[in-house]
Design a protein around this nucleic acid. Structure first.
Length: 500
RNA sequence: GGUCGGUUGGCCGAGUGGUUAGGCACAGCUCUGCAAAAGCUGCUACAGCGGUUCGAAUCCGCUAUCGACCUCCA
């Protein structure tokens, strides 16, 4: 199963065959959220993307260690030298709360949302504030190696020296250090503590009003944002691990600086493969919480947004995300969500039909049998080709048509074997639930089966009317349900219903 | 201004030298008490211009346009 997994390495810019450091094992680190406000949909897309990657690696049989951090200190607004303030510290000051209260509140919300989207929790979810000691140690190590310097209680990474020693700073993001000089030349006057404009803070002396502070050899202060990921990935995955992931927008400066820090402390890059998830767009523009252009997941689920005509369930949104490749931008529109909803339900309906099927026996491996097996293999090949979920879905939808045709009698069980049907069932279960992480939409908001029970009763009564050719009553029930946004579908052997 | 990446049919979105993406929408047919669902069929696109090639959506160049990053962002 592990054969031929390829992934696009952002560092080399090429699709490469995946070879883990340790046979059969994968260490993966994904940059998590900074918990200073509610998680927005763009964040969710990144974490859903890496959730599918995580799931597929596990499915392939790898023993995966998945680490995703929580940033709860060090993430600055503005430049470290010019009136910068830690995001969490600022929020705490504005709301007159203990910083850890802010952190806990938004971290809880983040976890809730990850659960709603059915993402698997990482194995380790380390927090920056829990690793201050290790961060101070890494700052010291980088200082000892001569790649950082202290200035007025703060410690800066010496990018120029790093570039001299290792040839290049900016390899991941394709930046040249000369350009970085030119870019920020105008701001040089504000950067008197830095020797070079592209240098970045790894330890920051706390201003008197700053709430989050720790004692370190250089000052009472707090760690730079980029440092935590170097420290925690190294601590939990080793000095060299397999895959590092994150949002595209973290490439520079965050990941670039992470690489520099790891060189500074360990003498080499942190990982073999860099994976970057692309942005979710809204109206053709990046969704970001810092400007107004964003939709909160909650607004999506209630439909309460000027961008939406109706509500969409979390699984519809997850399916919508799977319809594009993780490395492509995805433009969120109401039309696209509606299309996604229809497609998702078509897939799930077929899944239900398929799992309820029993082979009558005696089938032979004809053309149909071959086509089904080919589509199954194609779906796995698609996933192994840099986690191409949209392509894999296309393969599954070919199979959806086969399933529906078998059900409708347009195709015959005589043309496929019992074993192939079993394989098809297994494939659908594996893909839909294990790999894609989709779930049944739960229409029964009562949570105790009351709605399902009532619906069964109503549909039974309608069936009785239909048997008696009492079309008036039958249609009245159907129309009334439609008013409640419930669609009744009369199948050949039974009636089903869906909401929305 | 610099760097990088897009531009695919009515919409979303795969695809990188010759072969059907897929979903949604739309039209016709089949099935059905009617409708829905389902099946079948049709709609067959690749920003523009030029070049390479037997052959380009796919490679190269130019133009237009959109976006991301360069400052906090998944």
């Amino acid at each position: 199963m592990k054969n031929g997994l390829q992934l696009f390495n952002s560092y080399t810019g090429k699709k490469e065959v995946f070879t883990p450091i340790h046979e059969g094992q994968v260490g993966i680190y994904v940059c998590g959220p900074t918990v200073y406000s509610d998680v927005h949909l763009g964040n969710c897309r990144t974490f859903v993307s890496f959730d599918v990657i995580f799931r597929y690696l596990q499915y392939l049989g790898y023993k995966v260690r998945y680490v995703r951090n929580i940033t709860d200190v060090g993430h600055l607004e503005g430049d470290a030298d010019s009136n910068a303030e830690d995001k969490i510290s600022k929020k705490a000051r504005l709301e007159q709360l203990e910083p850890m209260q802010i952190v806990q509140h938004y971290m809880n919300g983040f976890h809730d949302m990850m659960r709603v989207f059915n993402t698997l929790p990482p194995h380790i979810e380390p927090r920056a504030t829990g690793h201050i000691v290790e961060q101070i140690e890494m700052v010291q190590a980088i200082l000892d190696n001569g790649l950082a310097y202290e200035a007025n209680g703060s410690v800066y990474f010496d990018t120029l020296k790093f570039a001299e020693q290792h040839g290049v700073y900016g390899a991941l993001s394709g930046r040249k250090i000369e350009d970085l000089i030119a870019e920020s030349r105008d701001n040089l006057k504000n950067q008197d503590e830095k020797r070079h404009p592209s240098d970045f803070a790894i330890w920051i002396k706390a201003a008197p009003e700053h709430l989050m502070r720790w004692t370190a050899p250089w000052s009472v202060g707090f760690p730079g944002w980029h440092l935590e990921c170097s420290v925690m990935s190294t601590k939990y995955l080793g000095e060299k691990f397999d895959i590092h992931g994150g949002g595209n927008d973290l490439k520079f400066p965050h990941h670039e600086n992470e690489i520099a820090q790891n060189y500074g402390a360990c003498g080499h890059a942190p990982c073999n493969y860099w994976l970057h998830a692309n942005m979710l767009l809204l109206n053709g523009k990046k969704m970001a919480k810092s400007d107004g252009n964003s939709i909160m997941p909650g607004e999506l689920f209630t439909g309460q947004s000027p961008h939406l005509t109706k509500a969409y369930s979390p699984m519809v949104v997850r399916f919508f995300m799977l319809q594009s490749h993780y490395s492509s931008t995805l433009d969120l529109t109401d039309d696209a969500l509606q299309a996604g909803e229809k497609g998702y339900r078509r897939l799930m309906e077929a899944q239900k039909l398929l799992q309820a099927m029993a082979h009558p026996g005696g089938g032979s491996a004809g053309t149909l049998d071959k086509e089904i097996n080919a589509a199954i293999e194609q779906a796995f090949a698609d996933m192994s080709d840099d986690f191409n979920t949209p392509k894999a879905l296309a393969s599954l939808f070919e199979l959806v048509t086969k399933v529906n045709s078998l059900k409708g009698g347009q195709l015959s069980f005589n043309d496929l074997t019992d074993a192939t049907l079993d394989r098809l069932k297994q494939t659908f279960n594996d893909f839909i639930f294990t790999i894609f992480g989709l779930q049944e939409e739960n229409f029964d908001s009562s949570g105790d089966g009351v709605v399902d029970g009532l619906m069964q009763l109503i549909l039974d009564m309608r069936q009785t009317a239909r048997t008696n050719k009492d079309w008036g009553t039958s249609d009245k029930i159907r129309d009334a349900l439609k008013e409640l946004d419930i669609v009744v579908k009369d199948g050949k052997d039974g009636v089903t219903w869906t909401k929305g």
